[in-house]
Simulated scan of single mutants.
Amino acid sequence: MPYNKNKQQAFEAAQQGATEAFDAYEAIVKDDADYGHQLKHLTQEVNEAYQQINNALETASETQRERLEQYQRDLQQIVEDVNQKQ
């Protein structure tokens, strides 16, 4: 039972981390004021999300794995988009 609980908690942490990174990305795209600070915040959120996703992948079910891999692809798209704008 603790294994399944930890597995679910890891997935939920990864899901929350990805959501926070996506929110930070939306904020940086919509508001150019204080871009440097926003970019630093976005970088931190993306890095944290990647860590949480990698942790969750260690114990993920097949369904969770598919979702986590989609989060990774979405985060990679954010990184590529930001890099193109610089």
Rank of each mutant, 00 (worst) to 15 (best):
M1V: 14
M1Y: 12
Y3W: 14
K5W: 12
K7R: 15
Q8H: 10
F11V: 06
E12H: 04
E12Y: 05
A14D: 00
Q15E: 15
Q16C: 02
G17K: 03
G17N: 03
A18S: 13
T19S: 15
E20S: 10
E20L: 04
F22R: 10
D23Q: 11
D23K: 09
A24C: 12
A24L: 05
A24S: 14
E26D: 15
A27I: 06
I28W: 00
I28G: 03
I28T: 14
I28K: 03
I28E: 00
D31L: 07
D32K: 06
A33I: 04
A33Q: 12
D34F: 08
D34M: 11
Y35H: 08
G36Q: 15
H37F: 11
L39T: 11
L39N: 13
L42A: 07
L42Q: 01
L42H: 05
T43S: 13
Q44P: 04
E45P: 03
E45G: 01
E45H: 08
N47Y: 06
E48N: 15
A49G: 08
Y50Q: 11
Q51A: 11
Q52S: 12
Q52M: 06
I53M: 03
N54M: 06
N54S: 06
A56R: 07
A56V: 03
A56S: 14
L57E: 02
E58R: 13
T59A: 00
T59E: 11
E62K: 10
E62N: 11
Q64R: 04
Q64D: 02
R65C: 00
E66Y: 05
R67L: 09
L68C: 03
Y71A: 05
R73A: 14
R73D: 13
D74G: 02
D74M: 12
Q76G: 08
Q77E: 07
I78K: 06
I78Q: 03
V82R: 10
K85H: 14
Q86L: 15
